[in-house]
Design a protein around this nucleic acid. Structure first.
Lengths: 269, 269
DNA sequence: CACGGCATTGCCATTCAATGGCAGTCGTGA
DNA sequence: TCACGACTGCCATTGAATGGCAATGCCGTG
């Protein structure tokens, strides 16, 4: 009857999650593999009713954080990209590093990577590839595994000990193949990297792909704190990645110098 | 007295602005010239009390949209950069265009620009510069004026008529110098661009800088809709930008083809 | 054609999340 | 010394946000 309908109307107004968190949960539902989402998908991904989702999404559109394509699907908005471009550890770092990275590409015609650590994830900030570059399974602006890539290992080697342990405890998987390394081996490797100041890797990234070789060096701030890793990933057939070290190091120190001159990550105090 | 104090406590809870809007107002307070902000600056920029601002900022930090430097100043967070990198019209477009842009840089050793239209603003998505490249006053990921740059003019030429009129009504200023063009002249120019499919500019970008020359072509989707402009900005001393047109056009069509093949801006329906 | 899924709009009673002021502490730089 | 900024609590207040429901329309699919 009408009584019951009226009673069930407008109940359960909210259960606690702050609006900001909901909003960023919406934005976080997008990923490199899901760049566009329909309303229902968005609602399901966040476990929230469609009505709430639509209202929220429309507000995000008004803010420019989302856009709506002609077919009605949601995509991340240009305004959000613009804001994100102001992140010092993202575009700021990239801005400084880019010219040196293009130099490396011109010299090697291979893949050049710039990666940073965010929490317990390795994140590729920039990836340039020459024309005959080796195959690379990692997307630009995507994650990079910490325990079997040269850039990842460099980041891990100079990370807080707590983070190292945490990562080493996780099961190490390498795409379809298992990682041919034990925590003990990785630990030894990290120590070596801290001694040498670089990392060389020769490996088969995925089954059924040709072998690759790579070299990585850290980029420091203030001469000690490691804030990023610079890496070249090349064809592995009889290649000697150590030949890349001089130019890699030169690029890394040049980038570090420019960063220290800029406002980047000033310590203040 | 205590009575008055108790009375004045906890008044004026909120006056209407949705939380999302407040949050993005905070994020919007950052700019290329203000990449880091202290709490008080942030509060002033948004016209909101410090207590509210701090609470909101902390929630944004929890979401990864903001980060706090060691000196206490706020900066845009890496997570926001990551989300922004998923914007099809930002990083998505850039991803496809980048290899072709680096080719252009290698060939010309000059500045190569990729720009799109967002609302009534021209926005640089990517800017690469060769080593001896001409001086360019526009920042990567910054705005680009629509009425006196080759890329801007191309974007404007294929924009909705309403937007064109709106832009032409605004006072045209070119850094310190006035723009040597009337709305009438610009209008004629836009018509020419629509006919030719390209734009050539020879100009002095700023007083006391050497002259530059530039060429720009549109990048289309589905063969008709213009979604971006590709441009080369070179030294202007006796240079003939029209010589760049063949390679520019080749790059633009290659980019367009790849975009149409990808999910980019699918029209659905 | 009927059906199910999706998008959209509107309404509504219900709260709890968000608010802004204030007080007090601490550190710092002028 | 003083002024300013950052930070932490506390608190009464209230309106923004919520989730359900109903109704409509628009596809594709079976």
């Amino acid at each position: 009857m009408a009584v019951e309908a009226a009673r069930s109307r407008g109940r359960k107004p909210s259960r606690g999650e702050p609006v900001i968190d909901r909003a960023f949960a919406l934005l976080g539902a997008f990923s490199t593999s899901r760049r566009s989402l329909a309303l229902a998908e968005l609602a399901r991904a966040c476990g929230q009713p469609a009505s709430t989702t639509l209202r929220l999404a429309n507000r995000l559109i008004a803010a420019g954080a989302l856009e709506r394509r002609e077919d009605g699907r949601f995509v991340i908005g240009l305004r959000l990209w613009e804001m994100g471009a102001l992140a010092p550890r993202g575009m700021g770092l990239r801005q400084v590093a880019l010219p040196h990275m293009t130099d490396l590409v011109e010299a090697t015609h291979e893949n050049v990577l710039l990666a940073v650590l965010d929490g317990n994830r390795g994140l590729i900030i920039e990836r340039l590839s020459g024309h005959q570059a080796a195959y690379m399974p990692f997307a630009a602006t995507g994650d990079i595994p910490l325990y079997y890539t040269s850039a990842g290992l460099v980041l891990l080697a100079f990370a807080p000990a707590m983070l190292q342990e945490q990562v080493l405890l996780e099961p190490m998987t390498m795409a379809p193949d298992p990682v041919p390394a034990s925590p003990r081996e990785v630990r030894a490797r990290l120590a070596q990297i801290r001694r040498d100041g670089f990392c060389l890797v020769k490996a088969v990234p995925l089954s059924a792909t040709p072998p690759v070789a790579s070299a990585a060096v850290p980029i420091t701030r203030g001469g000690h704190e490691v804030i990023a890793a610079l890496s070249v990933v090349m064809h592995g057939q009889g290649a000697e990645p150590s030949t890349l070290l001089p130019s890699l190091r030169a690029a890394a120190t040049a980038i570090a110098r420019e960063l220290d001159m800029a406002d980047f990550g000033r310590v203040g105090r």
